[in-house]
């Protein structure tokens, strides 16, 4: 299986503070990888580095054969990396359907004249993305809400809308930042099944940050454990569970 994403010795410093130190991730195609660690361990910062929100202080990031170090987020998304946000970031004044439509704008490849004059070439693509958006909304169970304002949805549905929106960008690699946050055990189980389902259906590779150990252990093939920006462990869920360093990071030492 080929490597889809690789980070080599990636460092990020904010002022004098090292947020991420020597991050070396390797993600193979089709894998589901977990990124875990205590609060403030640098997990979301790692996501932000890979998706282009931050530029690494040093090191390099390769995705599907492209060097994406320091690229702008929209360029990285175009190459096939999508994400959700820990602190939900929906387009709040727009409808649920529009939220998903926006994510397909870059794949439409229309120019502004075609779009404004509603030329047939544009209208055809517009119909296509509407169909696709409706399919995705059906997939995450939001069909009946398509005309509701995105922020009028309850919390759990907003998270699902974020996933639908990310899928609409046609990613190869999907980053999920705490997808199970605020979910009860029943919903978490459903989420696990959902993650596995979309992985197969859309041929995705998934990296997720999660505190819910049940979810992490249930779906991830390998885990990286971060603490204070340093990768302290890496391996299968079983290996991680018995790793003394990890136990120490989570529980502290006597």
């Amino acid at each position: 299986m080929s490597t889809l994403l690789e980070t080599k010795n990636v460092n990020k410093k904010f002022g004098g503070l090292a947020a991420v130190t020597e991050l070396n991730l390797r993600v193979d195609e089709g894998e589901i990888i977990g990124l875990i660690g205590p609060n403030g361990a640098g997990k979301t910062t790692s996501f932000n580095l890979i998706t282009g929100v931050y530029t690494p202080t040093s090191g390099s990031i390769t995705f599907a054969g492209h060097d994406i170090t320091g690229m702008k987020p929209h360029g990285i998304t175009r190459l096939g990396v999508a994400r959700t946000f820990q602190n939900i970031r929906l387009f709040k004044e727009m409808s649920v359907l529009e939220n998903v439509l926006v994510a397909q704008h870059m794949r439409m490849g229309t120019n502004i004249l075609e779009a404004t004059l509603r030329l047939p070439s544009y209208m055809k693509r517009e119909r296509h993305i509407h169909e696709r958006a409706r399919t995705l909304l059906a997939e995450v169970g939001l069909s009946e809400h398509e005309n509701a304002k995105a922020t009028s949805l309850p919390y759990g549905k907003q998270r699902r809308l974020e996933i639908a929106r990310a899928l609409a960008t046609e990613p190869k690699l999907l980053f999920l930042d705490e997808p199970a946050a605020g979910m009860n055990p029943q919903e978490s189980v459903e989420l696990m099944e959902f993650i596995l389902k979309i992985r197969d259906q859309f041929k995705l590779t998934i990296v997720l940050i999660e505190h819910h150990m049940q979810v992490v252990m249930g779906v991830c093939k390998r885990l990286y454990v971060l603490d204070y920006g340093v990768t302290i462990a890496h391996g299968t869920p079983e290996e991680i569970q018995n790793n003394p360093k990890v136990i120490e990071a989570y529980l502290g030492v006597e």
Binding site: P73, A82, F91, A103, T169
Partner: peptide, 10 residues
């Protein structure tokens, strides 16, 4: 509505 999300959506 959300610049960072817009950028992340390509």
């Amino acid at each position: 509505d959300n610049e960072i999300a817009a950028e992340a959506m390509g």
